[in-house]
Structures are given as C-alpha cells and as structure tokens.
C-alpha cells in the first residue's frame, strides 16, 4: 500500500551481480505485457492523433487532405458533441451515485449474513458475468409496451406507455440496465472494504456511545475511504465509456447518444476516419480529464489504484 514498493533493504545504488541479474530478469518478464499493451493502445492512439489532422473518409480514401486542427474545431463547435458529453456525464453521475448507495446497502447485508452466504454471492455474480448486450435486451424487452412487464407492474404507468418514445424515459431504461449489471461489482468491492473495518473498532464505538448512524459516518465510512474511492474511480470511468446499452436499447435515438456512441458512429457507420479520429482523441482526453478530476476531487490514493 506504500508508495515506495517494498524494497529489500539496500539494493539501490551499489549494484551486486545478483541485483543486476534481478533487474534484467524483471524487465524481460514484463516486456511481452508492455509491448502488447503498447501495440494495441499507444500506437493506435498516436495514429489517431495523426489521422485526426486529415480530412479522410473511407468512402473516398484517395482524397486525403491535411487540414490541421480543423476536425477538432468542427467537433468542438458542434452542439451535438456537447450535448452527448453532457448526456454521458449525467449518466455517469446518476449511475455511480445510485450504485454506490445500493451497492453499499448490499455490501452491508452480505457482510452481516451468516446463512446462505454462497447462494447470495453466487447470485450477485450473475449480473456481473452476464453480457451487457444481453442485459440491454432483457431490460429493453422488460420496458417494452407490447411484450414487457414493467408497465403492468408499475401501478402509475399506463399499460401502453412507450418508454422508448422520448428522452427521459429512454434514459431511465438505459440507466436501469447499466445499474442492474454493475451494482453487484460495486458491492463486492465495498464488501472487501468493509472487511477491513475491524469489529473491535465498531464495538469500541458502541461502548463509547455512538449510534448506528454515528458508527456509519464516523467509523465505517472513514475507514473504507480508500476502497470506496478506488471503486468510484473505476466505476465512474467505466460509466463514462457507456456504449453497449445505448447501442442495443435505443441506438442513440431520442438524443440518448453518449460520447462513445458518437465516436463509434462517425467512424464505423459513416467511415469518417478524419473527424472520427479527432473524436477518438477528444474522447481519450476527456477520460483523462474525468480521471484527473475524480482523483483530485476525492483525493483517491493512486498508489492503491495502481496496486502498489
């Protein structure tokens, strides 16, 4: 957990044969992983940076003109880009907040449960393991007014209400699928954090006269801070990249498009590699910005996120 990785005392400046051999071996062992990760991410990213400077469409591959930053200008001055970004941020904030609350409640239950532990843990893994596309389908059909059950089960909903006809209800359906699938993951991470809060400490707080709420706010949550922050960081970035559910459930209709979906559409459906690449770069940068903001705002311990 320390920032400095556990170093056997010394071995820093004056190198013995053994230390040198260790250094070489270590580098050799991580080389394949590094090369692979670089080939599939860093290299394409650089290429996207390069392509984004051209007016380049696959429908006319020979008309490749250098246009400088104009693709970025086009994207950034288009209200579509900002609408989709706002939509994405909204989805991220709402889903992570809801997941955090429900996930924490689930984690508390799982932490306390003695009987049927295996059953609970097995079922909590099922949403995690299910393909997002399948989850999207299940919820789309559940909300469907011709074949779904949601309208019938919700007393205040008319039986023929079409959830996918307007923005508000569409986005609710999308978020329902997203939240359903990822809450279990969140609750498992929080459960691991809860396990770090010692029973002794809670009993001491009880003896000191703390109420249930006080124990939660003054003992449990502060001691789980690191776990919560890392969980939030990973989940928020995951939610920011939302794509599968939107693709399956609305295909971006009714302005439900996310920034990832926009990028995808420009590249794969419209073959606009120039502007698509510019959007890719912008997407990557915006993820960095979001990550940076979360890390700074919530003071996430990056060393922990990095697994040091």
């Amino acid at each position: 957990m320390t920032v400095q990785t556990a170093t056997a005392p010394g071995r820093v400046t004056e190198e013995s044969e053994r230390a040198k051999a260790e250094n070489t071996l270590g580098r050799q062992l991580v080389l394949p992983a590094i090369v692979l990760m670089m080939v599939v991410t860093a290299f394409p990213m650089l290429r996207a940076l390069y392509l984004s400077l051209f007016d380049y469409s696959l429908t006319a591959p020979d008309d490749r003109d250098f246009v400088g930053l104009s693709n970025y200008w086009t994207a950034l001055s288009d209200s579509l880009f900002w609408r989709d970004t706002a939509n994405t941020v909204m989805i991220m904030v709402v889903t992570v907040a809801v997941e955090l609350v429900i996930g924490f409640a689930f984690a508390m239950v799982m932490h306390r449960v003695i009987f049927a532990r295996g059953v609970i843990r097995t079922s909590i893994l099922i949403p995690y393991g299910i393909i997002t596309v399948v989850s999207g389908f299940a919820w789309q059909f559940a909300f469907s007014n011709s074949n779904g059950f949601v309208n019938g089960w919700l007393p205040f909903m008319g039986d023929d209400f079409n959830w996918f006809a307007q923005y508000d209800s569409s986005i609710i359906a999308i978020m329902a699928s997203e939240i359903w699938k990822t809450t279990p993951f969140m609750s498992l991470l929080l459960l691991a954090g809860l396990a770090n809060v010692s029973e002794d400490m809670l009993e001491a707080a009880k003896v000191d006269g703390a109420t249930w709420w006080q124990r939660l706010y003054k003992v449990i949550l502060p001691n789980m801070r690191a776990a919560i922050m890392v969980a939030v960081l990973f989940r928020a970035l995951d939610a920011y990249r939302i794509f599968d559910n939107i693709f399956v459930m609305t295909a971006g209709a009714n302005k439900t498009e996310s920034i990832s979906f926009l990028t995808y559409r420009q590249t794969v459906e419209q073959f606009q590699l120039g502007i698509g690449s510019a959007l890719s770069v912008l997407l990557f940068l915006s993820v960095l910005v979001v990550a940076f903001l979360i890390v700074k705002l919530f003071r996430v311990d990056l060393a922990q996120a990095r697994q040091e």
């Binding site: 990785t5 170093t7 056997a8 071995r11 230390a19 260790e22 250094n23 070489t24 071996l25 270590g26 580098r27 991580v30 992983a33 590094i34 990760m37 670089m38 599939v40 991410t41 394409p44 990213m45 290429r47 996207a48 392509l51 990973f234 970035l237 920011y240 990249r241 794509f243 990832s260 979906f261 990028t263 995808y264 420009q266 590249t267 794969v268 590699l273 698509g276 690449s277 959007l279 890719s280 770069v281 997407l283 990557f284 993820v287 990550a291 990056l302 996120a305 990095r306 697994q307 040091e308």
Partner: peptide
C-alpha cells in the same frame, strides 16, 4: 526489484481506464 516497475503499473492503470471506443477508428 527492477527499474521501470512503476511504469508497468501506471501503464496498466491507464489501460484499465482507456476508452475502448477511441481505439475503434485507428
């Protein structure tokens, strides 16, 4: 113990947060 360990860990973290869609085009 080897030099570059932090680099590997940081790379892994960045990749874990990488927006996959931005790789689609390149």
């Amino acid at each position: 113990e080897f030099r570059g360990k932090r680099f590997v860990l940081t790379t892994a973290l960045v990749i874990a947060m990488f927006p996959v869609v931005s790789l689609v085009s390149p």
